[in-house]
Design a protein around this nucleic acid. Structure first.
Length: 130
RNA sequence: UGAGUCGACCGGACGGUCGCGUCGGUGCUCCGGCACCGCCGAGGAAAGUCCGGGCUCCACAGGGCAGGGUGGUGGCCAACAGCCACCCGGGGUGACCCGCGGGACAGUGCCACAGAAAACAGACCGCCGGCUUCGGCCGGUCAGGGUGAAACGGUGGUGUAAGAGACCACCAGCGAUCCGGGUGACCGGAUCGGCUCGGUAAACCCCACCCGGAGCAAGUCCAGACAGUGUGCGUUCGAGGGCGGCCCGCCCGAGUACACGGGUAGGACGCUGGAGGCGGCCGGCAACGGUCGCCCGAGAUGGAUGACCGUCAUCCGGGAACCGGCGACGGCGCCCGGUACACAGGACCCGGCUUACAGGUCGGCUCAUCCC
RNA sequence: GCCCCCGUGGCCCAACUGGCAGAGGCAGGCGACUUAAAAUCGCCAACGGUGCGGGUUCGAUUCCCGUCGGGGGCA
């Protein structure tokens, strides 16, 4: 599914992406996607991680949601810019959503997010985003 | 046939197409990995974390206090707060179910309101006797009254001024002795005694028995990074530590404690074959034990099991026959439509307990009704 | 993995050793002040089986057991 060079694993990378001042965020009823471009990883393949909290459901439903999100992001890995870190956070509503609904939500959020990310990336290397 | 009760068990199967994880093989590689093939890949509760162990370290696991746990008896078990059998008490017509089920003459506390009085004796109304200034006072008494969850045995009689276990008979309860049964809890019976002395220990407590502490982020090894400064105490007159609350005892011991500052948190082992499962035989009422044979291929680390299709099975609803029987009813099997669905995922491993759960299978027993 | 705490009116929360469930605040209604409103002051009632199930007790928010939900701490 998701090759391991595209996977975000380390806890520090998660907190960096979620808490970064330079990060961007956009969401829907089911998912929220955080992203950041770290200058140190310029040119490297984009990485994706997932956060599914206990609020979403028990272990079975959490695994189901994670499995679906991994499959969705694996299909869309080619549209993500190099050097970007993405964290997909699932809301409790994601437990009830179908695979098609989740896919539509992910597409809508990415369509809002990617142009802003490209604009920020092109606007300068200073990293001042506000 | 209906209602009920108890126990055991299953938790879809087979085939196909996609998809996921570890391991192995082959090929490619920009050495990060990628592609293909093959084997294997969660549960009855894997859950909650309520108990008990194994294992590892803390000195060899030591003593006392504190603290915690258990609580009818006998047995089983590695151990337990678990299991089995029995006893006692309560519930049910019954099968059966429920019980934190030691001690209230070791001591302390509490028992609101009501009531005269709430624990050891006392006496409000009343009853009886005496006195009276007719308002009551003194004495006797607790049968009757009312309160309460609970009021100092119950019924009948003797007795008396009125009464009372004051006395008598029977009953209930308590205690002692003896006899019989049982390993025991306890049960059955006889005699005698004083006539009887509330409840609460899931209040403190007492008694008996049990418990050292931590937890796989235990622990072991490898690799790697960094920078010290200040203050206190101290080197056989011993700081500090092992040691989890305290004391003792034992051991280590030349550095150590605190503050500020700095660095790291990468990998491997531990890691799965064990109080393991199934079957036969033997012992035991049973839990369980013994023995023989066979069978056991998850070990992840941002953390892997799902989706769809077909067939079968199952169940539900409806329909039409046939066979057996006097009958209540039973049996066989066909057609049509619908239907694979709950609770839920390992993270060191076991034994239990508790809780969640669609649908279903099998068996024991009880009660009621009907038929012969 | 280990260990704690909480659950009571619509909301935040009291109720001490078991004994009449509400002290207080916010919110609500009425009145006063104001031209009107806010703020302030006074008065008012309504609303509950103490998260759920069971037990001990005469009696449970309180004690015990189980369970559900929420929150927190340590490694």
């Amino acid at each position: 599914m998701l090759p391991s060079r595209h996977r975000l694993r380390a806890s520090e990378d998660f907190t960096a992406t979620l808490r970064s001042r330079r990060g961007l965020r956009s969401g829907s009823a089911t998912v929220v996607i955080h992203t950041t471009m770290t200058g140190t990883r310029a040119g490297c393949p984009p990485r994706v991680g997932f956060v599914v909290s206990k609020g979403v459901g028990n272990a079975v439903t959490r695994n189901l949601v994670k499995r679906r999100l991994r499959a969705l992001l694996a299909q869309r890995i080619s549209v993500l810019p190099a050097g970007g870190d993405f964290v997909v956070r699932a809301n409790p509503a994601a437990a009830q959503a179908s695979y098609a609904q989740l896919g539509a939500d992910v597409d809508r959020v990415l369509n809002k997010l990617l142009p802003r990310l490209a604009a920020v990336d092109a606007s300068g290397d200073s990293g001042q985003v506000s």
